[in-house]
Design a protein around this nucleic acid. Structure first.
Lengths: 265, 265
DNA sequence: ACTCTGTTGTTATGGCTCTACTAACAGTAT
DNA sequence: ATACTGTTAGTAGAGCCATAACAACAGAGT
């Protein structure tokens, strides 16, 4: 971590470049005059005054009205909590309004033939959890990669299983299977041979209620060398039906959960 | 709360105006094409594409690659947690570095004759809590306004009192005194007459260890009609000594804690 | 007292980047 | 044929960076 990154982070938190540099400089100095800050922060001295003024309004530094003026930073903990409070306040304000204008669109009747794509691990995880939570007939989750079974997903799966929804976890990976071996509500199984073989770019497969599917893959994104996860998903569409049928036919291990799902009807 | 405020809040959270409007429009619509978004969000249609692209990268909406393209927002909860995660990450990154370059400046030897001013209730509260926490001989806190006794401050005072540090709360206000009446470690007292009378602009008074002082006042700030709290404080300086002496002489009720503080030496 | 020098706090200026907004265009669907 | 889609270019303005200039002031040394 170098100073440039820290400045950029502070900029993304809403400060200008000068403000970020001045704040860091004051943390280095403990306290100091405009000139001292100018030297340490590498900010034009004349601009130190406006930067400190703005920082004082944000509650990140304190100002001594004297000649020359002196400045000192608040404690790191105080700075963090001030920024966090501001963030929470902004978020509250924004989403308060969003919630009032939000239209209630029923979850089930996805009348359109929609296939949605998602990029990025975190967003995909959010969607998986949301899909699993909506399930009330059956859930199948598969991945060859233990890293892709996050706590949130595992928790959502166990919840569904505990609620009596037939839940299956399928993986070639021993670690993944063992992770759910303890839970007797969850059926753990390995996929048939010739599927999910080594070197595959398969990320995760999710199937819910015989009408919802999500499939993610790992591939080179904009940054070569770093695998970026991309997923598509669909619920209540013919796409989903076809994809599920494909899965059921090609992967024998899905039959079991399918059968259990039918028994429950 | 109107839409303009919500957009501004989202802008302060790092979105552009277009991105904010498009996000809100999609929450209203549930899902829609670029043209529908353009109508609802009042954003040039041609700019909807770049805005949605950026929103997708932030994980706030999902994109359907079709003709025409369709967009849908993630759930409000997912959006909030995504933004919060990003915020915490940025803050971590920034302050990780700040902590490494921070100079350790001893708390006691404030060799300079410094009087620091602070503007804003929250910042003043932070400073008060910090001052109280540093006390190890005596603490006096006074205010005529019950609103100025926040939970954080009350907790800090009770902590000090429980640690055996003589702690006094002084106020003309019954509510303030009763708030600490239950705690037998805290000495509660009323100020002498002719002090802290009605209509005074006194905010809060803090005295720690016979060497630190903070005094805040309520006055009209930039926005007339709204009282803005401003404080100054000083620790380990001659200023502080003089101010404390002034207090001790003019306010009888301080003598008690002063005496107790002397006994402890 | 007086100048000389350096500092402080303030203000103005041009360049640069990012955003807001408009306009145009080739390809596609109906 | 016509309307729409997705993309790109271009202009205007706001905010930020960077530099320069300024009056007011303090101290040193005649």
């Amino acid at each position: 971590m170098n100073e440039g990154d820290a400045v950029e982070s502070l900029e993304r938190l809403g400060l200008t470049g000068y403000e970020a540099k001045v704040f860091i400089a004051l943390q280095k100095l403990g306290a100091g005059t405009a000139r001292e800050v100018h030297r340490v922060a590498d900010v034009p001295r004349s601009q130190v005054y406006s930067a400190t003024e703005s920082l004082e309004e944000r509650g990140l530094i304190e100002v001594q009205q004297s000649n020359p003026m002196r400045y000192r930073p608040v404690s790191i903990e105080a700075a963090r909590s001030t920024l966090r409070e501001r963030f929470e306040q902004e978020q509250e304000q924004a989403f308060d309004y969003v919630e009032t204008v939000r239209e209630q669109h029923s979850d089930d009747d996805e009348e359109q033939e929609d296939i949605w794509t998602i990029r990025g691990r975190d967003q995909i995880e959010d969607r998986i959890v949301e899909l699993v939570r909506e399930a009330d007939e059956s859930v199948v989750f598969g991945t060859p990669n233990a890293d892709l079974v996050t706590d949130d997903i595992a928790a959502a799966l166990r919840d569904r299983a505990a609620d009596g929804v037939p839940t299956t976890v399928v993986s070639v990976n021993d670690v993944v299977r063992e992770a759910f071996a303890a839970d007797e509500n969850v059926v753990v199984t390995a996929p048939p041979p010739m599927f999910e073989k080594e070197g595959s770019s398969t990320g995760r497969i999710v199937r819910v209620d015989g009408e919802g599917v999500l499939l993610s893959v790992l591939g080179e994104g904009e940054v070569p060398g770093i695998d970026r996860e991309t997923a598509f998903w669909s619920v209540g569409t013919n796409f989903a039906s076809v994809l599920i049928e494909l899965m059921d036919n090609s992967i024998g291990s899905f039959e079991e959960s399918c059968a259990r799902s039918l028994e429950n009807r």
